[in-house]
Simulated assay, not measured.
Amino acid sequence: MVCRHCNVEGCLHCVSAKPGQEGEKLEHCKQCMPGYSLTEEGECEMRGLGFFIAVGVVVVVATVLVIIWYAIVVSKPCVNPEGVEYGLQCRERMRLSVPGSSEAYPLTTNLLSTNVAGPGTMALFRYQFALLVWASTLLLVWFGFVVFVSSDLLILGNRAAESPQMLCAIIEWGHHRQMELVWTKAWFEHEFARL
C-alpha cells in the first residue's frame, strides 16, 4: 500500500500486477514515453539507438583520420628553414614585452592598472573584475540571509527522499518553509533589481 514509480524504464503508463503476485515481472508498460517503443514483453526500448551508434562510428573514424593526417604532417621534412627562422623572429618581435627590454611581462602583472596591450585590454579586465565583485557581493548578501534568517535557504528543493512517504513529507515541509521565507527572496530581488 505504498505509492512508487513504475520500475519499467521509459514507461509513461504502467499496468501493475495483481495483488499477491510475485516474481520478476510485477508490472509491465502500457504506453511508453516519447522516444521509446513498446516491446511484446511490456518493456520500453529506446528508438534511435542506431543513430547514436552511427554517430559514434563517424566520430571514431574522423579521429583516426585526423591522427593519421597529423602523423603525415609531422613526418614531412622541413623544406624552408630560412622561412621558419624568419617567422620565429617575427613572432618574437610581436610578443608583448616590458618597454625598454625584451623580457615578457611577469605573470603577476596587474592588468587592471598596467597597460600591456592597449586600453581595450584594461577595460576588459576591469569589467571582469567588476563582475566578480558584483557576484561576490550577491553571494555574501545571500549568505547573510542564511546566517541571520535560516540555513534552510540553502537546502530548499535539494533534499533527497528515500521513500515515497519521505518524498511527501519533504514536499510538505519545503512548501511550508518556502512560504515562510518568501520575503527574503522578494527583498533580495527587489533591492538588487534597482541597482
Rank of each mutant, 00 (worst) to 15 (best):
S150N: 06
L112A: 03
R91K: 11
A123W: 00
L181K: 13
V147T: 10
W142P: 09
A104C: 05
A104S: 13
A123D: 10
L181M: 09
E172L: 08
L181D: 14
Y86G: 10
G144V: 13
L111P: 00
N115F: 02
A130Q: 04
H176R: 09
V84Y: 06
K185N: 09
L139E: 04
L138M: 12
V133R: 04
T121H: 07
Y127A: 00
L131I: 04
G157I: 10
R95F: 06
R159H: 10
P164F: 14
A104G: 12
F143H: 05
V147E: 03
F129E: 06
F148C: 12
Q178K: 09
S101E: 06
F125E: 05
F145Q: 01
A104H: 06
A123G: 00
T114Q: 03
F148R: 04
S101G: 04
G174H: 11
S150A: 05
V146Q: 07
E172W: 08
V149Q: 05
S163D: 10
E92G: 10
M94G: 05
W173R: 14
L131G: 01
V84A: 06
V141Y: 03
L181G: 08
T108H: 06
A130W: 01
T109D: 02
I171M: 11
I170S: 11
L124M: 06
W134N: 13
R93S: 08
T109E: 01
L154R: 13
L167G: 07
Y127L: 00
W173L: 10
T109L: 05
I170V: 15
V182I: 12
S113F: 00
S97C: 11
Q128T: 02
L124C: 01
P99W: 06
W183C: 06
V98K: 14
M94E: 12
V182H: 15
L140P: 03
S101T: 15
F145Y: 15
P99F: 03
T137A: 14
A130N: 02
V98G: 03
A123Q: 10
T184W: 07
I170P: 09
A117W: 01
L131A: 00
Q89Y: 09
G174Q: 14
C90V: 14
Q89H: 12
A169T: 11
G83K: 15
G100F: 08
T121C: 07
L112V: 01
S151F: 02
L132M: 12
W173S: 14
R177C: 01
L111A: 02
S102R: 14
C168I: 15
R91G: 08
F129M: 03
S101L: 09
L140V: 10
I170C: 07
G83E: 15
R91F: 11
P119D: 08
L132Y: 05
G100I: 02
Q178T: 12
A104V: 05
Y127F: 02
R159V: 14
V146K: 06
W134I: 00
L139K: 01
A123H: 04
L124V: 02
R126I: 00
E92N: 13
S136N: 04
D152V: 01
E180T: 12
G157N: 04
E180M: 12
Q178H: 12
L96R: 12
G157H: 04
L138S: 02
L88D: 10
M94W: 08
F125N: 09
L154D: 11
V146D: 08
Y127N: 00
G83L: 13
P99D: 08
T109H: 02
A104E: 12
R126Q: 13
Q165Y: 14
T109Q: 05
